[in-house]
């Protein structure tokens, strides 16, 4: 199907870092099943560096590909850098997403941030709450565009 780029199809069909992590230092889950996509991101942190990361995702092809790509991008990164990961960067790394799937890359960005926040909270690491905005889940907004039909 030409709906997605080869990169998206590759990450969808061969997702990197997929699976649960038993001894994660931080876990972030965003999205909801009613909307049709949920991402859960696990991170392992050593000396401020994300040494390992994995995900499980319920969602469409681009949701799974976005999760996979985001894990690859933040693996080995200092935490502060991972917090700078933007949905745009995820979408670009996938050679683009269809317009109505861009929210999947937003979800990936939010999942990373939620995992970092969980890590900070669990390890009593002080942070400025403003860096996470109001609530990590609330930025996840789709626009209800007109339904198409086949």
């Amino acid at each position: 199907m030409a709906l997605y780029s080869d990169k998206v199809m590759d990450h969808f069909q061969h997702p990197r870092n997929v699976g649960k992590m038993e001894d994660a230092d931080g876990i972030g889950e965003v999205g909801n099943a009613v909307c049709g996509d949920i991402m859960r991101m696990y991170i392992k942190v050593r000396d401020g560096i994300i040494t390992d990361v994995s995900f499980i995702t319920f969602g469409c092809g681009s949701a799974i590909a976005s999760s996979s790509m985001a894990t690859e991008m933040i693996k080995g990164m200092p935490i502060e850098k991972a917090l700078e990961l933007s949905n745009k960067a995820v979408a670009e790394a996938l050679d683009g997403l269809p317009a109505h799937k861009l929210h999947c890359s937003v979800l990936a960005e939010e999942a990373v941030r939620a995992a970092v926040k969980d890590y900070y909270d669990k390890h009593d690491i002080a942070y400025d709450p403003a860096i996470f905005g109001c609530d990590v889940a609330c930025a996840h907004q789709h626009d209800h565009d007109a339904p198409a039909e086949a």
Partner: peptide, 29 residues
């Protein structure tokens, strides 16, 4: 599970089907 990813994987295994998931309808619902 979600229908669109199911369809794409079935397509890769040589089966053409369809789904009523939001992702395949192009809308949110």
């Amino acid at each position: 599970i979600e229908g669109e990813s199911l369809l794409l994987l079935l397509d890769a295994r040589g089966i053409a089907a369809s789904s009523g998931s939001a992702c395949t309808s192009g809308s949110l619902d």
